[in-house]
Simulated assay, not measured.
Amino acid sequence: MPTMHLPSAAGCTLHDAGHTWDAIRVPRSVGLSSMAILGARCGAVVDDPLSPALYFFVPLGTADAWDVQNTRALTVGSTVTIPPPRRTDGPGPHWRMCPGDDRWLTDPDALRAAIADALGPAREGRKN
């Protein structure tokens, strides 16, 4: 099935996940901390203030084994709103980290570790 590209009035397009990449939806506050932890290892990231969430792009197949609490893996059957190139401010979805020719994807193991580090202090105070 081809990737869907439906334009919106704001210039954003919907793209199907699970064809050339999967995506990981992370709550905005955790995602921002994860980006800081990842630093230069961070790939492209979409900030959707309406959700509010950040979307990290990861290699195809990552969603099959993704099991990180409070996040959601997106693959076939899910779409991600992609902003126009270089839109780094809202309103609406925008790039928190713009993609480059070699910087679309974040390593899933590095992302998993960054999310765990970002959630670390909150986890310690929680009771199961």
Score class of each variant (00 low, 15 high):
6 L>C: 05
6 L>G: 03
9 A>F: 09
13 T>R: 13
18 G>T: 13
20 T>H: 12
23 A>C: 11
26 V>T: 06
26 V>R: 02
27 P>H: 10
28 R>V: 01
29 S>V: 14
29 S>F: 02
30 V>D: 07
31 G>P: 03
32 L>K: 13
33 S>N: 06
33 S>C: 10
36 A>N: 11
36 A>F: 02
42 C>E: 09
43 G>W: 00
45 V>G: 03
46 V>D: 00
47 D>L: 02
51 S>R: 09
51 S>P: 01
52 P>E: 00
55 Y>D: 02
61 G>L: 06
61 G>T: 11
63 A>V: 05
63 A>Y: 08
66 W>E: 09
68 V>N: 00
72 R>K: 14
78 S>I: 00
80 V>N: 08
82 I>K: 01
82 I>L: 14
84 P>R: 11
85 P>S: 12
85 P>L: 11
86 R>Q: 14
86 R>I: 03
87 R>M: 11
90 G>L: 07
92 G>D: 06
92 G>C: 08
93 P>Y: 02
95 W>K: 05
97 M>V: 15
100 G>R: 11
102 D>A: 12
103 R>C: 12
104 W>P: 03
104 W>H: 10
108 P>I: 05
110 A>W: 02
116 A>D: 15
117 D>M: 08
118 A>D: 02
120 G>K: 10
121 P>V: 04
121 P>S: 13
122 A>L: 12
124 E>R: 13
124 E>Q: 12
126 R>I: 11
